[in-house]
Design a protein around this nucleic acid. Structure first.
Lengths: 162, 162
DNA sequence: CGTGTTCACTTCAAGATGCAACCGACGCGG
DNA sequence: CCGCGTCGGTTGCATCTTGAAGTGAACACG
């Protein structure tokens, strides 16, 4: 209780950058969701789960691996897998080597769904991001994004303050 | 129905960039929400609404202006304003010059809330983003973000076919 | 005026999320 | 073996978001 109540404000320039980044984090996911929802009837998160499975050996992953891959909480992934299971795209099973794990496996129908959906999604990824940057810019973009992501992952969130 | 079924895939490099950007759009908003929720009991969206009002003349904006400012749908903003109203931070009123508009006004209590919340939020913005880039990088970051945001805003989402 | 349309907003139902409590499956110490 | 803590997942609940339908105020046209 002896700190400066008002920290360094953002100047006009910093503010613009901040707003630009915030806008990005809102509009890009929204655009991805729209395209997927419209063309494939699934959200981006569900797509990530399906895509993750489609690339895994035996098209199978543990729920927890899936959660890490798709950047989601365990309850959320569990829910999503249930939904995908209901739609016939994923099958649940428990890991023979350790009954605590649950394995999610992509069905053949699920595989078909991914194959049908991926091209449109990749096209969107290109149109919204990838194709708008030349290789040098891309490297920089990636580095910038990683920098922010790393900071955000820091469980150092609040004001533990110095 | 006579196109290439499989478009240009992403190569390893492009893929990395893509994943980095996606990660950013998931982790940064999550980190912002965590800090605000924890320190102020509100989400980032609610904060944006309050902040928008706090900077507006008379601390007042139309719901629709608020929606545009905060990047949210009209129903969502309407709901949020109701919530904020219940908490005593915002007051509703109809526009005398055109009864169709609804004006949202920040109360004094609401102003205090913003004043109390802003420093922590700005600090977070600095730690996660702003302070990690020197001025030249910041300009570039902003330009990159704008490029993607502009593309995402394009109502050109899906596969307009052809 | 009167009818119809547009506009800004609100409401409602359905679906999605996060959080916290809960549950069964290991694994280790005794 | 038994008991206990841990680990991965699941479930329940409270909240939030979304999309569609509804409301009422202004305008437009005959």
């Amino acid at each position: 209780m002896s700190e400066s109540p008002s920290p360094r404000w953002l100047d006009a320039d910093e503010r613009e950058t901040w707003l630009a980044v915030i806008s990005l984090t809102i509009r890009l996911p929204a655009a991805l969701d729209r395209q997927l929802r419209r063309d494939a009837g699934i959200g981006h998160f569900e797509y990530q789960v399906l895509a993750g499975l489609s690339e895994a050996p035996d098209r199978t992953l543990r729920i927890s691996e899936l959660a890490e891959f798709a950047d989601g909480s365990l309850p959320r992934v569990s829910q999503v897998v249930s939904r995908l299971e209901r739609r016939g795209w994923v099958r649940r099973g428990s890991d023979p080597t350790d009954g605590r794990y649950t394995l999610a496996t992509l069905t053949d129908t699920g595989w078909d769904k991914v194959v049908a959906t991926a091209p449109g999604h990749v096209e969107q990824a290109r149109r919204l991001v990838i194709d708008r940057f030349d290789p040098a810019e891309r490297a920089r973009l990636r580095e910038f994004a990683d920098r922010i992501t790393a900071a955000s992952a820091d469980r150092h969130d609040g004001l533990p303050s110095r």
